[in-house]
Computed example of a mutant assay.
Amino acid sequence: MSQKQNRERQALIVIDVQEGFNDTAFWGNSSNPECEDKIETLLTVWRANDWPIIVVRHDSESPESTLHPSQDGNRLMSFIADAAPSLFVTKQVNSAFYGDPALHEWLQAHDIESLVICGIQTNMCVETTARMAGNLGYDVVVPLDATRTFDLTTTVPGLGTISRSADELMATTALNLQSGGFARIATTEKITASLQ
């Protein structure tokens, strides 16, 4: 297989880059302010080479969520809305593989074997999608600097209140994905350099 054919079988999946995630009053402190710039860099490379781009949008079922379809925050950020993707998927759960249309079926129909997965939130929909992609047999790379998330605090029975900063959650996602064999972690710069 030629290098060109290999590249055509590598899709960029951009997850939940929606206006609602800019609402810090709702979500709290976020990590990695360069996330959107890095995603835009990846999109530029994929567009220039006419490689497959998949855009995913989360349509929350909770009317109070900034990502509910009735909320302005459900909209994709402008640079994503203009992406002209090969496939547009909507979902109501963490994994993009449980969206509409069926992502796995589309990838198989287009002979796509490897994925670069980026977006928001690192430890939620990005990690869940990457884990499932790895389990399904795809070669997965996650450019961690093209993701971001938010500080998180919750009460867990038997453990009490647990808090983690957004940066800690990003690092844990990297550890989970790479050590678990679900995906390789890379930087946007390393990925784009390897594609030249």
Rank of each mutant, 00 (worst) to 15 (best):
M124L: 15
R75A: 12
H110C: 15
Y98G: 05
L115F: 00
Q92N: 14
T66Y: 07
C118Y: 15
S60M: 06
P101H: 03
R131Y: 07
F79A: 04
R57G: 04
V93G: 09
A102H: 05
Q108N: 11
V116N: 08
A102R: 10
H68Q: 11
N135K: 11
E64I: 10
Y98R: 05
E61H: 09
P63M: 11
S114A: 14
A84Q: 07
I53R: 01
M124V: 15
C118K: 09
L136Y: 14
D111Y: 13
S114V: 11
T90P: 01
Q108M: 13
D139Y: 14
E64T: 13
N49V: 05
R131K: 12
I53K: 02
Y98P: 04
E113A: 09
Q92A: 10
P69E: 05
H68S: 11
I117D: 00
H104C: 05
E61T: 15
M77P: 00
D111N: 08
M124N: 13
N94A: 07
T122Q: 06
N49Q: 15
C125D: 06
Q121Y: 15
F97V: 05
D50H: 10
F88A: 12
E105V: 08
Y138C: 00
W46C: 00
I120R: 06
T122E: 00
L136N: 04
L76M: 13
I53P: 02
L103T: 00
D59N: 07
S86H: 12
V55G: 01
A48Y: 12
A109H: 09
I80W: 00
E64K: 12
I120T: 12
L115D: 08
Q71C: 06
A109N: 11
V141W: 09
A96F: 02
A130T: 01
P63D: 13
V116P: 00
N94D: 12
V126E: 02
T128Q: 02
D139A: 13
N123F: 14
W51N: 08
S86T: 07
S62C: 10
L136A: 11
M77G: 02
E105N: 07
